[in-house]
């Protein structure tokens, strides 16, 4: 193929009119042929894919050559990753359960008398006031302490 045809194909490519076969031809051409000055900039565009394929092949080969010790290490890391995720999920469930349980306990207004639950708000308030009265000091704390010291 003449240089003029290559140039036409090159221009056609940048107009987006080339077929798959024509693009394949351009890739092979730029991979093997010496580039002219005006092709120096666009040449790497065509060789990129074939170079990438060769790099991928090289990496695949490298992975296949990995010693058994490295493979075990990778397996261990994967296992560790899975276990960490499972532990996090479990922890999340436990914490969520705890929060929900605490919320239920704190938001439900009730009084438990001898194991029986009463939710009537008037009754609950009355028992709350009674319990508060029970912790009130009948005497001044200072007096109480002084009396204890003198006992």
């Amino acid at each position: 193929m003449f240089m003029r045809d290559i140039k036409n194909l090159h221009d056609k490519y940048f107009r987006g009119e080339t077929t798959h076969d024509e693009e394949q031809f351009l890739r092979e051409y730029f991979l093997n042929a010496d580039r002219t000055d005006d092709q120096m900039e666009t040449g790497p565009l065509f060789t990129y894919f074939s170079e990438e394929a060769s790099v991928t092949e090289f990496l695949k080969g490298l992975r296949a050559d990995l010693p058994a010790v490295h493979k075990n290490k990778i397996r261990r890391i994967r296992l560790l990753r899975v276990l960490s995720m499972a532990a996090c999920l479990l922890l999340g469930v436990v914490l969520l359960n705890r929060i929900i349980r605490d919320d239920n306990m704190l938001t439900e207004n009730s009084v438990w008398i001898n194991g029986e639950k009463i939710t009537h708000i008037g009754v609950v308030r009355a028992y709350a006031e009674t319990s508060f009265e029970k912790v009130k000091s009948e005497e001044n704390m200072l007096e109480e302490q002084l009396r204890f010291m003198l006992e």
Binding site: M105, L106, T107, S110, V111, W112, N114, G115, A128
Partner: peptide, 19 residues
């Protein structure tokens, strides 16, 4: 509260929010 609140002989009050 958790251990003895609902046992016989105990009185446990739980109040929160508007109440």
């Amino acid at each position: 509260f958790e251990k003895y609140g609902k046992l016989k002989g105990s009185t446990m009050v739980i109040l929160s929010g508007e109440a």
